[in-house]
C-alpha cells in the first residue's frame, strides 16, 4: 500500500505543467469551452477578412434582406451587404477595440495600483479618492457622456474603455500590494537595501501578475460588453463599419421582415462574451485557488 502510494506520488511529480493544465481543464468543462471559443474568434479575427466572400461594405440593392442561402450563408442586410462577411471583418474590430481598451486600463491601473499601494500615505489617499469618484458614476453613463464630448470614433471608444476600467484594476492591484507588503520576503529585500523600484519590480510585481491576469480577462469580457452596447445605442463606432453592436442596432428596424439580420451579429456577440466570461472564470479558479472574490 505504502509503496503504491509512493509510486503515485512520484508519478504526480513528473507530470508536465502543460499536462497538468489540460488535466485541470477537463475538470472545468466551461473553462475548456470558453478557451476554445476565444481561440476560434482570434483565428476568425486573424484570417476572417481574408476568407470573407464579399467586401464588408459592398452593397447590392437588388439583393436586399435576402434570407440565408448558398450565396450568402448568413443572408444579406438592408443594403444587400453580405452579413457573413461583415461579421468576419467585424470580429477584428471588436477584439481590437475591446482588447486595446483593456490593455490600456490594465497597464495604467497596474502602475497606479502598484505605486499607490507601495508608497501609501497622501499619494495613495489622493489616487484612491479620484478612483472612488470615477467609480461613483455608472460605467455606461460615463462612457456615453465622454463619447458625447469627444465624438464617437474607434480611437475614442478605446480611450473611454481604457479610462473607465482603470479604477477597478488599480483597486485590485493595490489590495494585493498592501497584502504583499507585509510579507517577509518583501521585508527582507528592503532590509537588504534594495531600491524601491527593485522591490516593486522583482519582488511584488511577479506576485501581482496572477491577480492581474484574472482581472484583465474579466475586464476584457466587460469591455466587449461595453463596446457592443455603445455600438447598439449608436454612440460608439459609426456606420458603415461592421461593428456587431451597431449591426444589431441597425437591424432592429428590419426585425419583423428579416430576423437573420439581427440573429447572426447578436449570436456572435453572445458567443464571444460568454466565451470570454467562461475563460476568465476558469483562469480565476486555476490561478487563484481558494480566493473567491468578485466585484462588479
Amino acid at each position: 500500500m505504502a509503496a503504491s502510494e509512493q509510486k503515485i506520488q512520484k508519478k504526480k511529480i513528473t507530470v508536465s505543467p502543460l499536462k497538468k493544465f489540460f488535466r485541470r481543464l477537463r475538470r472545468y468543462p466551461t473553462t475548456f469551452i470558453g478557451i476554445s471559443i476565444v481561440i476560434i474568434f482570434l483565428l476568425i479575427a486573424a484570417f476572417g477578412p481574408l476568407i470573407a466572400p464579399y467586401h464588408y461594405s459592398q452593397q447590392d440593392l437588388l439583393q436586399r434582406l435576402q434570407p440565408p442561402s448558398d450565396e450568402h450563408i448568413f443572408g444579406t442586410d438592408q443594403f444587400g451587404r453580405d452579413i457573413f462577411s461583415r461579421i468576419l471583418v467585424g470580429s477584428r474590430d471588436v477584439l481590437l477595440i475591446a482588447g486595446s481598451g483593456t490593455a490600456l486600463a490594465v497597464f495604467s491601473g497596474l502602475l497606479l495600483g502598484l505605486f499607490s499601494g507601495y508608497i501609501g500615505g497622501l499619494f495613495d489617499e489622493i489616487v484612491m479618492r479620484i478612483m472612488d469618484v470615477i467609480l461613483s458614476i455608472p460605467p455606461l453613463l460615463l462612457a456615453m457622456v465622454i463619447l458625447f464630448a469627444l465624438g464617437p470614433s474607434r480611437l475614442n471608444v478605446v480611450i473611454v474603455v481604457g479610462f473607465l476600467y482603470i479604477p477597478m484594476v488599480a483597486r485590485v492591484v493595490r489590495s494585493v500590494v498592501l497584502e504583499l507588503k507585509t510579507r517577509q520576503f518583501v521585508e527582507a529585500a528592503r532590509l537588504r537595501g534594495e531600491t524601491r523600484l527593485y522591490v516593486l519590480y522583482k519582488e511584488i510585481l511577479p506576485n501581482v501578475l496572477p491577480h492581474l491576469a484574472v482581472e484583465a480577462s474579466m475586464r476584457f469580457s466587460y469591455s466587449i460588453f461595453l463596446v457592443a452596447s455603445l455600438g447598439f445605442l449608436g454612440l460608439g463606432v459609426q456606420p458603415p463599419s461592421p461593428d456587431w453592436g451597431l449591426m444589431v442596432g441597425e437591424a432592429r428596424t428590419w426585425f419583423y421582415q428579416a430576423q437573420w439580420v439581427l440573429f447572426f451579429p447578436a449570436g456572435a456577440i453572445a458567443t464571444l462574451v460568454v466565451g470570454v466570461g467562461f475563460m476568465s472564470d476558469g483562469l480565476r479558479r486555476m490561478l487563484l485557488p481558494g480566493g473567491v472574490t468578485d466585484d462588479g
Binding site: 468543462p29 466551461t30 469580457s221 460588453f225 457592443a228 452596447s229 447598439f232 453592436g245 444589431v248 442596432g249 432592429r252 426585425f255 430576423q259 439581427l262 447578436a266 456577440i269 453572445a270 462574451v273 460568454v274 470570454v276 466570461g277 467562461f278 472564470d281
Partner: peptide
Amino acid sequence: DQLITGVSMAFVGLPEFVSGLLLIS
C-alpha cells in the same frame, strides 16, 4: 450546480440588447 453556474455565467455576460431582442422575438 454546474447547470446553475454555467447558465448564470452566460447570463452575466449577455448584453441586454441581445437577450432583450431574443426575448422579443
